[in-house]
Design a protein around this nucleic acid. Structure first.
Length: 590
RNA sequence: GUCCCCGUAGCUCAGUUGGAUAGAGCGUCGGAUUCCUAAUCCGAAGGCCACAGGUUCGAAUCCUGUCGGGGACACCA
C-alpha cells in the first residue's frame, strides 16, 4: 500500500507556516545565487512573533544562524535576506535589528485573511496534521483498584487527559489507556477487607477493622452486594474457597467507583488493561525468555538495600535479574520474587510490549514517587522493542506531588484512618473546570500547592473564570447584537484598526501554540496562552469604556459593527477550541 | 551514600526548547463604572533569574560543581 496523498484542498496553511515557507524560499534563492554555500542547513532557522510587538509582526534569526556557514557577519547576510523578502508584496518592511534579527511587518490584509481562516475552520482551527499516521498510547491514572480516587491521583489524571486531547488535536491517533493492577498482594488485602464487610452485612459484629486491611466505609456497599449475591456460603469458609471470587468482585466494584470518579472530571479511557489477564496470556514469560536469550536477564543475588535504614530481615536470595545497570540504573532489578511470582516490574515490561503492539509511541504519566523506576522500565522497553523490530519511542512524564492546603495549613491525609481527601469531594466543592484548569496552570514537573480555601473563596481571582468570562462576554455581545438585528460580517474587515489587529495577531498564534505544546507534550502551554488571549480581549473591551466608538456594537455604523462582531466571534472560537483541548467548559454566560 | 524533579518580584507561577530592555496574577499604592457583563481595565513600586565556573555572536534556558527545598532507593505497588 502506498503513501496516502495529502489532500491539499482541505489542508489549512496557517499564517506562520506560510511565512516560514516564504523565508525558506528566500534562503534557497540565496543559495542559488551563491551567497549561501550549497547544502546549507536551515534546521535552526526560526520564524516567530517577537517578544516585543513593537519590533514587528514576525522575526527570524536566519542571518545569525547562517552567518558562520556563509562565512560572513550576520548583519551583512541580513541585508541579502531582507532584499529577497521585501520583494514579497505582503511584506511591508523587513528591518535588521540588534545582532542580526530580521523583523518583518505584514500588510494588514495578511492578518485579516487569517481572521477569515478562523471563521472558515471553526472548531478545527488550530487542529494540525503534524501527528498524522502516528498512533500514540497514553497511559494515565492507573490507580490501584483498592478504593475511590483521592487527590493524589488528580493531577496525573488531568495532565494525562489533556495531553491525550492535545495530541489528538495535533493529528495523532490516540489511545487512552488505564492499567489495572489487579494481580498484586494489595488485591488480596482488598478481597479480605471485602470479606469482612460481607460478614458484617450478614449481621456479624466485626468490631474494629484489623491493622493491614482497608478500613474505608466505601467497602460497605460491596459487602452488602456480596451478601445478597452469594448468601452466607462463604461466611465461615476458608480463604482458599472465597479469595478468587472476592478478588474479582472487589476489583470490578472498585473500578466502577474509579470510573465514576473519573467521569466527574470528564475523563474516559478507551482501554482498560488487566495485569491478571497479562499474566494469564503468558506475556511476562515470553519477555523473560527473550531477555535471557540476549543475556539481559540472569540469575543473581540482589545487593543489600542502600537506604538509611537497612531492613532487619534482609538476606541474600538468588533471583532472576534484569541488567538495568547496563542502562545507568544503580542496581540490577528482579523480575520475579523468591516465591516465583512476578514482580511489578517483571509484569510491567511485558505490559509495555503489549501496548507497543498497537502503537507507534508510548507515553506514561506517573507520580513523582515512582521516579526511581523510570530507568529500569525505559531500559527494558528499549531492549525488548529493539529486539522485536523497531525501538519504540517511550516517554515517561513525571507529575510532581500536589500539596493540599486549607487556609495555608497542610491537609492531613492518612489511608489508614480513611481520612484522605477524595477527588469526588474536591470536584464537588470547587467544580470540574476549576480543578482541571488549576492543575494545568503550572508545568507538571514542578511541585504545586492546592489551597482549598483559596481556590474556593477566591474563586473570582481564579484564572479559569478569567478565560471563561472572556468567552461569556463575547457570547453575550453577539446575543445582544442579534437582538438589534446585527451580526458578524466579513465585508468591512478593512475598517478594523490597530487594536483589533493586535487581537487577531494573538489569535493567529493558536495553531503554532498547539503544535509547540503537542511537540513538547506540555498541555499547560495552552492554558497560559488562553489566559493571554483572554487578557487581550478584556483590554480591548475596556477601550470601549473611555471611547464609545471602540465598542463592538455601534448602532450608527452597521459596517464596522459587523466587522467587530466577526472578530469577536473568531476570538470566541479560538477560546472554545483551546478550552476544548483542556476539557474545560466554554460557558455562554456567567 | 546514589538517583530524579525543582530554585525567577514579598507570595503563587510563566518564560515560545539558546535570542532583543526579564513577564503575569495575588498583595501594596494611585486611578477608570450615567458605558455591549467592573468576575474587567489602566498606571506605579518591586529582580545578583540560588551561587561559582564553562560552552558562543548571545545563557534564566545547555555543561560541570556547590548550596537549598521536595521525592525515591526491598522481592511493595
Amino acid at each position: 500500500m502506498g503513501v496516502r496523498k495529502e489532500n491539499t484542498m482541505t489542508k489549512q496553511t496557517t499564517l506562520y507556516a506560510a511565512y516560514a515557507t516564504k523565508t525558506h524560499a528566500a534562503l534557497e534563492a540565496l543559495e542559488a545565487d551563491g551567497v549561501l554555500p550549497a547544502g546549507t542547513s536551515f534546521a535552526n532557522v526560526t520564524l516567530e512573533p517577537p517578544r516585543d510587538a513593537s519590533h514587528g509582526d514576525l522575526a527570524t534569526n536566519a542571518a545569525m544562524v547562517l552567518a558562520k556557514q556563509a562565512k560572513t557577519n550576520p548583519r551583512a547576510l541580513a541585508e541579502q535576506i531582507t532584499a529577497k523578502l521585501e520583494a514579497d508584496p505582503s511584506i511591508t518592511s523587513a528591518e535588521i535589528a540588534g545582532p542580526g534579527f530580521i523583523n518583518l511587518r505584514l500588510d494588514p490584509s495578511a492578518w485579516l485573511a487569517e481572521l477569515s481562516a478562523i471563521a472558515a475552520s471553526g472548531a478545527d482551527y488550530g487542529r494540525s496534521d503534524t501527528g498524522k499516521g502516528t498512533r500514540v498510547n497514553v497511559e494515565y491514572v492507573s490507580a490501584n483498584p483498592t478504593g475511590p480516587m483521592h487527590m493524589g491521583h488528580c493531577r496525573g489524571a488531568v495532565v494525562g487527559d489533556a495531553l491525550a486531547s492535545l495530541l489528538e488535536f495535533g493529528g495523532h491517533e490516540v489511545t487512552r489507556e488505564y492499567y489495572i493492577n489487579d494481580a498484586g498482594g494489595q488485591v488480596d488485602v482488598l478481597a479480605r477487607s471485602a470479606h469482612l464487610r460481607y460478614r458484617e452485612a450478614l449481621g456479624e459484629d466485626i468490631g474494629e477493622i484489623p491493622e493491614g486491611l482497608y478500613p474505608g466505609d466505601y467497602l460497605k456497599p460491596l459487602g452488602e452486594h456480596l451478601a445478597s449475591e452469594l448468601g452466607d456460603r462463604f461466611k465461615s469458609a476458608s480463604e482458599e474457597e472465597w479469595l478468587a471470587i472476592f478478588r474479582a468482585e472487589a476489583v470490578t466494584a472498585m473500578m466502577e467507583l474509579i470510573k465514576a470518579d473519573l467521569a466527574l472530571l470528564g475523563i474516559h479511557h478507551d482501554v482498560f488493561s488487566s495485569e491478571a489477564a497479562l499474566h494469564a496470556a503468558g506475556k511476562p514469560d515470553e519477555a523473560e525468555a527473550w531477555l535471557r536469550e540476549h543475556d539481559l536477564v540472569y540469575d543473581g543475588v540482589l545487593e543489600a538495600p542502600k537506604g538509611k535504614a537497612p531492613p532487619e530481615d534482609w538476606e541474600p536470595v538468588e533471583l532472576p535479574l534484569f541488567r538495568s545497570t547496563k542502562y545507568g540504573d544503580d542496581q540490577d532489578r528482579p523480575i520475579k520474587k523468591s516465591n516465583g511470582s512476578w514482580t511489578y516490574f517483571g509484569a510491567d515490561l511485558a505490559y509495555h510490549m503489549q501496548k507497543a503492539e498497537n502503537a507507534d509511541a508510548l507515553i506514561d504519566i506517573w507520580g513523582a514517587d515512582h521516579a526511581g523506576t523510570v530507568k529500569r522500565i525505559k531500559a527494558a522497553v528499549a531492549a525488548l522493542s529493539a529486539g522485536q523490530g523497531q525501538p519504540i519511542p517511550f516517554d515517561v512524564k513525571l507529575v510532581q506531588m500536589v500539596q493540599l492546603l486549607r487556609g495555608g495549613e497542610p491537609v492531613k491525609m492518612s489511608k489508614r484512618s480513611g481520612t484522605f481527601v477524595t477527588l469526588a469531594d474536591v470536584v464537588g466543592e470547587v467544580g470540574k473546570d476549576v480543578v482541571r484548569f488549576t492543575m494545568l496552570t503550572r508545568k507538571p514537573e514542578a511541585q504545586m500547592e492546592f489551597d482549598f480555601a483559596k481556590v474556593v473563596e477566591a474563586s473570582k481571582d481564579n484564572p479559569v473564570f478569567y478565560v471563561q468570562y472572556a468567552h461569556a462576554r463575547i457570547r453575550s455581545t453577539l446575543r445582544k447584537a442579534a437582538d438589534a438585528g446585527l451580526g458578524p460580517s466579513d465585508e468591512n474587515l478593512a475598517q478594523l484598526g490597530e487594536e483589533e489587529l493586535a487581537l487577531i495577531k494573538r489569535a493567529a498564534q493558536f495553531p503554532r501554540e498547539v503544535e509547540a505544546a503537542a511537540k513538547a507534550r506540555e498541555p499547560h502551554r495552552i492554558a497560559f496562552y488562553l489566559y493571554d488571549l483572554a487578557s487581550e480581549l478584556h483590554a480591548f473591551w475596556n477601550l470601549g469604556n473611555d471611547s464609545p466608538q471602540k465598542r463592538f456594537i455601534l448602532e450608527q455604523d452597521a459596517g464596522l459593527t459587523g466587522a467587530r462582531l466577526f472578530l469577536a466571534d473568531a476570538i470566541g472560537q479560538v477560546i472554545r477550541n483551546g478550552l476544548g483541548v483542556l476539557g474545560v467548559e466554554a460557558v455562554e454566560s456567567m
